[in-house]
Design a protein around this nucleic acid. Sequence first.
RNA 1: GCGGGUAUAGCUCAGUUGGCAGAGCGUCAGAUUGUGGCUCUGAAUGUCGCGGGUUCGAGCCCCGCUACUCGCCCCA
Length: 418
Amino acid sequence: MKILKKPAGTLDILPVDAIKRKFLEDRIRKIFDLYNYAEVRTPSFEKTELFRRGIGDETDIVSKEMYSFKNDEFTLKPEMTAPVIRAYIENSLFNRSGIQKLYYIANMYRHERPQSGRYREFTQFGAEAIGSNDYSIDIEMIALSVKIIESLNIKNLSTKINTIGSPDERSRYLSELKNYLSKYINDLSEISKTRLEKNPLRILDTKIPAEIEILESAPLLYDFLNKQTKEHFSNVLSGLDGLDIKYSTDYRLVRGFDYYTSTTFEVISDDLGAQNAILGGGRYDNLVEQLGGKPAPAIGFACGLERLMIILEKNDFKYPDEENIKVYISPIGDKAVKESLKLLFRLREAGIKCDMDFLSRSLKAQLKEANKFGAEYVLIIGPEELERDIIKVKKMDESTESEIKLNDLTNKPNLLFQ
RNA sequence: GCGGGUAUAGCUCAGUUGGCAGAGCGUCAGAUUGUGGCUCUGAAUGUCGCGGGUUCGAGCCCCGCUACUCGCCCCA
């Protein structure tokens, strides 16, 4: 019989990795909590329409990467901002406070070709702050995302920041950009040619050297932004300076979702391969309204957990060890097994992490197993011990043995550690 | 959707001009008849990814397929 394998681009998270993820998730939750962000969980799938309207029909994600089913009615979530905003509107969260600060850790699904740092099912953590247009929340959001990564002692990071203005401000610029690029139409790649019609802004982050050269003397989006947008941006930058957050501005930073307005940012790492973006985010002041809610400005970010883990691996990050078992019980013979089970559960009731042999193995094999588990004590129960109503207690690190009365231990399990 | 690379034991990988299928790690057993780690000795485990072709003979050469992987596009 042929064995079945997991779908391409998915991961089996075995104990050795699950421990690492648990550590990271705990660390991340702690920081979100410290910043007074509250957790939100949404369904694994949503109406397809939500992503069409939220992310944009022309984006790569919506046009070709979604896992959709039931006649395209539903889609596994490819990103979290649209669902969070949907939940915000649907549950009238705006009635609770002027600003909602929410965070999530959840799995996302995108049907792309898998490669290093890119999976079809992957984990993102991120935050959304909904309701404020103030530059101060931009600063908190960017600082928060940077601080989470910094808390893991990651080096070789760079934070890039840009502002892309509102759709109104952009439209004037886009026609100028189109005019300019049209002159070079024959030097543009096929992709850029189509983008020129559908989404000219995306041409800005091309990686083709020849196109970058053409863009050198292209009109600058920044010059088309109105005074408030520029002021907002400079306030964000000086606020980050005040918090000693290192960044560089990058006018070519435009992000792949249609909903972004004003501030955008991204953190990249040299330790990732081709997928060098570990974290991305920005302001999306029109999305709430676009999804049918009472207009509310918002800003958020998302970070890839798997990419974070790749970086940590490259940095030889030392994850804390898991807690070893305290006690391992070694029964010899049938009668001893029953006695051992009773004792095992008694110890657990007392909150002592413990295990026993379930394979009727030789004492030698059992001690080997206990050693592997890092057990502090091994309790040996065999015919001789049962005869005398005692248990042999072996302290592993000292290789010393003592005896203890079975009754005493049952009454006071913590006697072991005194 | 488009390119490159790889596929041999549970894991990491050797395998020469085509000539008996290998190592390290891990597992198990023994040295120690009821005592772990360290050491020594021994053992088990293979559809050499799948299908075809060439050949006296294929893990090795040729063709096709599949899977995995890296990259392009895009993104976390």
